[in-house]
Amino acid sequence: MSAQLIPETEQDLAEAIRAAARPLRIRGGGTRDIGQDVPGEPLSTAALTGVNLYEPGALTLVAHAGTPLAEIEALLASEGQRLPFEPMDHRGLLGTTGTPTIGGVVAANVSGSRRIQVGAARDFTLGVRFVDGTGTVLKNGGRVMKNVTGYDLVKLMAGSWGTLGVMSEVSLKVGAIPETEATLVARGLDVAQAVTALSAALGSPFDVSGAAHLDAAAGGGEGETRIRIEGLAGSVAYRAGRLREDICAGWDLIEGDASAPLWKQVRDVEPFHGKPGHVWRYSVKPSDAPALSNWIALERPGAEFVYDWGGGLVWALVAPGGDLRPDAHNLGEEAIPGHATLVRADSQSRFELIVFEPPKRVEEQIIEGLLQKFDPRRILNHQLMGM
C-alpha cells in the first residue's frame, strides 16, 4: 500500500481520493469484513487518530475517524462515562483481526443490546466531517443535538459503509456509566415464551436496558432468557424486585460485575464464535421472531439462534446454502417483513448471494441520486452493498 493511501490528515485524505484513478477499498480498523468483495486499491483511515475535544460536563466527544474504539472507551471510563449504544466487536464472530475504530462504528451504525432503550449509534452522532468521491471535504452537524440545518448528512453517513464518503472526524454524545446493573435470567423457555416475557418487560415501567434470549444450542444445552436493568443501586433493586413479582417469577437474579459479561456475550454473539457456517442477521418485529426462526430451522436443520432487542434482532448460525430471506419468493403470502444481512459467509457465497437487504424500487432511485451527488465516479467501496 502506498503512503498516499494511508493519509495522516484530512487534506491528505481529500487529495488521495481526488487523485484516485481507479476504485478505492475503504478500510478503518479492518474488523468488519462484511459485504461483497470490493475491487480496488485499499485506502486506510488508520492514521487519522486522536481525540480533538472531550467535554465530560457537556457529554460531548470529538475524535478523528481512525481513533481506536478502545482508546475512546478508556478515556470515557476515566470520567465515569461511556458510549450508551454499546457498539459490538465483530472480530470474534467474523474471525478478523485489527482494531475497531470509531469511524467504523459510525459508518456501520454498530449498536448493541441497549439500542432498545437509548437508540442506535446514529442517534448519538452529533456531527461528521467526511470526504466525498470527488475529493471534497464536507461537514454536517456539530456538538449539540439540534445543530443540523438542511439535509441531515449525519444520519445518512451512519450506516453507509463508506459508500458515500470517507469520514475523517465524528462528534458524539456520550453518557454516564450507571452505578450498577442486574440481570434476571430464566432457563428452559422456548422462543415464543421468551419473546412474550421480554415484550412484557419492555412494556413495563421498569426501564429495561437489555432483553435477549439464547436458544438451547447457543445457551449451552437449554434456552436462556435475560432481562437487564441499570441505574442507581436502590432503583435497580426495586425494579428487579417488581419485575420478579409481576413478570419474572422464579427467575434468577445476577447482580453487579457478574451481569456485564452476559451482555458482552449477547452483544458480540459469542455463542457463534469459532463455529463453522453462515451467519445471518435479521431485523423483524419481535412477534415475528418465532415464525422466522421456525422457518429457518426447517430450511437449515441444526440452525442456532441468538435473539436481542426483545426478539427484534435475530442472529442465525446455519449451514452454508442459498438465500435465507423470508420474503414472498420463499413464503408467498406468509412473507415476514423485515431486513436480512448475510454477515458471515465464504467469498463465493458473498459473490453469489445478496449480502445486504435489496432496496425497493423507490429506494433505488433515492440511492442512485445520492451516489450521483456524493460519488459520481463510483470509486468508494463500489458494490460493497450490491449497488
Rank of each mutant, 00 (worst) to 15 (best):
182 A>W: 10
164 L>E: 06
211 A>E: 08
169 E>F: 12
202 L>P: 14
180 T>H: 05
224 E>I: 11
165 G>Q: 01
165 G>H: 00
165 G>M: 02
202 L>F: 13
210 G>S: 05
188 G>L: 04
224 E>F: 03
209 S>R: 11
201 A>C: 15
155 K>F: 11
187 R>Q: 10
182 A>F: 05
238 Y>A: 14
185 V>T: 00
168 S>V: 03
171 S>H: 06
174 V>M: 09
159 G>C: 07
205 P>I: 03
233 A>D: 14
210 G>C: 11
178 P>L: 07
183 T>D: 12
164 L>H: 02
226 R>M: 13
160 S>F: 03
236 V>H: 10
218 A>T: 01
163 T>H: 05
219 G>F: 03
219 G>P: 06
156 L>Y: 06
238 Y>P: 03
223 G>M: 04
156 L>E: 01
192 A>K: 13
169 E>H: 10
176 A>M: 14
212 A>T: 09
197 A>L: 11
197 A>D: 01
214 L>V: 03
153 L>C: 07
234 G>V: 13
201 A>W: 11
159 G>N: 10
163 T>I: 02
182 A>G: 12
228 R>T: 12
191 V>Y: 09
177 I>D: 00
213 H>T: 03
235 S>T: 15
162 G>Y: 02
207 D>S: 11
221 G>W: 13
185 V>F: 01
226 R>F: 07
155 K>V: 07
173 K>H: 11
169 E>G: 06
209 S>Y: 10
224 E>K: 14
154 V>I: 10
221 G>C: 13
174 V>P: 05
192 A>F: 04
198 L>S: 00
186 A>Q: 08
207 D>K: 14
200 A>P: 05
157 M>V: 05
216 A>S: 11
226 R>Q: 12
222 E>D: 11
195 V>K: 01
162 G>N: 03
161 W>K: 12
230 E>Q: 15
157 M>G: 02
203 G>W: 05
209 S>Q: 13
185 V>P: 03
207 D>N: 14
199 S>R: 14
160 S>W: 01
152 D>H: 05
153 L>T: 03
168 S>T: 09
223 G>P: 06
175 G>C: 10
153 L>P: 02
238 Y>I: 12
186 A>F: 06
202 L>S: 15
153 L>G: 00
191 V>P: 04
154 V>Y: 00
179 E>N: 00
204 S>H: 09
208 V>D: 03
234 G>T: 15
153 L>H: 04
186 A>T: 07
173 K>T: 09
